[in-house]
Design a protein around this nucleic acid. Sequence first.
RNA 1: GGGCCCGUGGCUCAGCCUGGUUAGAGCGUGCGCCUGAUAAGCGCAAGGUCCGGGGUUCAAAUCCCCGCGGGCCCA
Length: 1050
Amino acid sequence: MTDRSSYSISILIVCRSLKSMFPSIYSPKDVEREIAEFWNAHQIYQKVKSRGYKKFFFVDGPPYTTGRIHLGTAWNKVIKDTILRYKRMRGYRVADTPGWDMHGLPIEVKVEQELGFKTKRDIESYGIDRFVAKCMEYALKNKDMMTEQFKALGVWMDWENPYMTIKAEYIDSAWWTIKRAHEQGLLERKLRVVNWCPRCETALADAEVEYKDKEDTSIYVKFPVKGREDTYIVIWTTTPWTLPANMAVAVHPSLEYAKFKALKDGKIEYLILAKDLADDVLRKGGYEQWEIVETYLGEDLVGLEYEHPLADEVPIQSNWKHAVYTADFVTAENTGCVHVAPGHGLEDYELGIQVGLEVFNPVDDRGVYTDKAGKYAGLHVFDANRVIIEDLKRKGLLLAEEKIIHRYGHCWRCKTPIIYRATEQWFLAVSKLKDKMLEEIDKVRWVPEWAGASRFKDWVSNAKDWCISRQRYWGIPIPVWICEKCGKWKVVGSIKEVPWENDLDLHRPKIDEVTFECECGGTMRRVKDVFDVWFDSGVASWGTLKFPFEMSEDEFRRIWPADFITEGHDQTRGWFYSQLGASVIAFGQAPYKTVLMHGFTLDEQGRKMSKSLGNVVEPEEVVERIGVDGFRLYVLSSALWEDLRFSWEDARNVLRMLNIYWNAVRFAYTYMSLDNYREMPLSEVDLSVEDRWILSRLESFNKLAVEAMENYHLHKVVRAFFDFVVEDFSRWYIQLIRPKVWEEKDSPAKLATYTTILRIVEKTAKIIAPFAPFLAEWIYQHFIKEFKQAEESIFFENYPEPDESLIDEELERCMDVVREIFEAVSNARQKAKRKLRWPLRKVVIEAKDEDVEKAVRKLEDIIKTQCNVKEVEVVKEFEKDVVVKPNYKALGPKLKGRIKDFAKFVEGLSKDEIADILSKGEIEFDGMKFGVDEALIVEYKIPEGYEYSEFSKGVVYVYTVLDEELKREAFAREVVRRIQEMRKELDLNVEEFIESVVDIDPKLVEGWVDYIKHETRSVKLEFGKPREGYIKEWDIEGMKVEIGIKRAES
RNA sequence: GGGCCCGUGGCUCAGCCUGGUUAGAGCGUGCGCCUGAUAAGCGCAAGGUCCGGGGUUCAAAUCCCCGCGGGCCCA
């Protein structure tokens, strides 16, 4: 048998030499740098990529290449990477092509800013070719920068071969899709009212409109009724600039209207408006009094003609007749009479088409009135508001005006308020596909479920035809050529049909030079428009496969649709939608099988992160402080579909917990490597009860992890991991097995422990590997490989499957009880001021539950050592002293004078008699019976010397009296601790021997001298006043004690 | 006006789907402990009308309804 003290020297020497191999402090930076280099040098990603035998088709939602990534983008890619790594470890061959969204207004606007441009005219005089080349350059530059950022987050995707929306083969996919739409009659060109950005001078899709509060002037206007003096229809609008295009007034057919006789400034007017809304409106108009002259239903007003209020200013208006129509969209708000301008409103347009109104739009691309607007020609519509209001006022047609704040649409890129304009645009007839789309949504698995079932369905049910044309430059050109002579269309479904040499050739303006000859002999020219950029990403699931440009239909059908996609909840109306629409057109089915919807990143107060608020947190900043693994675990630790409120405190806490993991593994490493441990099968070692317990916990954790992963509940894995590592492994198991690692070399118990630990470290590392790849790989390389045959990389391993035969729920429950007992004992000790260092005689556990007895029987030794008590006892009922007193208040009035006798009787009761009375619940006295509650006040008294504390399944009673024997042991421990503290202060090497002098009466530690010498590595221990070496005075439990130590002479 | 989500100690969040003994963590605060994982670690305590109000039920943080507050999306 090896002597521990000599053995410990060798340990310490070895420890020092191991320092470089397993540093004492977890430094994420060092770990991550080392592992990144290892992966690079050994081409681990490339090797992992070629493994796997089951297909997993993931499609990356392409980020815009407009700048550096932010917290949300980082979170998004980390989620993806974690899922992909997991799937790889499950044997899947994963499609991991990253995507880049490189077209569209986002980039045009940025480049315009760089070049200092304000309007489209600037671009055209600069030259479309140069502008487009700039856009491409900008997009590529950002793509490269963002790629580096993603790589730094440990994201394993095929960065060398991404899909890019600007590439020829990708454009091919888009063109092919449009051709499919055309073949099914779903591609339409029509005059429609669209969202229009007057700055970008282009149509916008609904998805590109951002709503935010805006202050506007709302006005009540009197439209003169034709042929009747002083009679008016009253309308309300927030967009005075649309009045020049007014064509009609709409009322609700079944709403009640009335003609009011109203007096103002001594003048009488007749006003027609909704009956119940009139009071409010007329008051605003400053009328002194009014009364109803006549009432009608809305439908009665149909056909009533009026004069256009600005007929003088806009002469063309006198060409048309203006009248009242009914419409269901009218609500009982404002005046109940709605001004209708078919050229400037969606519903207005529809009504106009229905009843045959002129779709009059006197506003050009820039938002400036054309000559048709008469007096207003050349004015910008937003500037015209004021002028028009003044004109109405002058003409006496303005009834009232007020400021309101309402939600108004703005261009998503340049934030300019949008206007509605009737223009010719290209549409995909989504409205015809709505039912099919809703049907397909049901077939998709949504995480969380409500993402699809509720939120997405709501959006799709409200969807209108998708306007896919943009009057811009940087985008996929719409592949439609129209004959100048006969108007025939040619929809080109493949880039192979046009000449091109490079990607730029397929963009404007080069592509505009391509013409075809029509059957009629005329020349076919391309429409100038480019695609809505949402259409680009809509075709991603086949664009990424280069279908149909490179991939055959057979192969495509084997892979497609996507097994999995994930994006933020803003993509409900974005990418989830554009993909579904494009895919139902192209293939009649949804392009994805599972969709995981995640949240937004917000600051700690739940606000959006924005530069103006100054609350932006950069991913790099977080990584700098807590490492990549820490960052990943932090963002993956809260429910994915909820918004993530970033908190530095929580982020740092993740690092703290990783550090506990590190320390625990390092602790094991020190001893296991010293003992040259090599892996042994579990079946060949003699597992102790704590080994069996932690293994059971490990397998339970493993089971939970796999279930959670399959449900994409990543946060549950992270939480369970920390819970297991911190609570079970570090705080409990390692405490329990500490003494064992000091046993002699081949102690079977120690081997069992090592075998257990190896299994724990291996499984935890593998389970967490997709989340914290660097740390997991590091532990694999430095720990696992040290003790067993292993693969080149942890990512060549399979994700661990739980071994349920090792799960022992009863044992887990018992250990829970023991931990509770330990806590309760600690609590009682604290109350009694008995620190853990002091041994106590016994603890009595009063059990309310049979589990407690079971637990104590099984795990008694653990309780004894951890609680530092000599004896553990379980009882059904702890024997308390019961004290009963007469209840004078209740019995006094009944017994009157005899109460004194009763008191004597009670006083004279023996313990047994009291117990008997209490169990019966009644007391007999002098022939009378009373209930115990009535007659007695019962008090329990814990016997002298005990302190108690409750836990969920009982109460612990700790006997806190220290007898002489315990005191000597306690005192010895106190001395040891002081000497060790002094050794540290002297900066002694831990293996060095010392000589000690302690100024106490040796009787205080009688029987413990050898113990003190052994623990403090003292070759000599004397009692008396120390004279040389390092001397320090201590206070041990109120006693002044001088201790002196010095190096032993060798 | 409509849809969806959220509302749990000072702060950040679990738990809710599948109702069940005393609602859990972490941070922060206070008081201690440990000292052969140690520029770490651990324990205990205080602190909660589970947004409010109804309902279902033997039993509601949990299920249902009505409000209130916040967010996102739409009109």
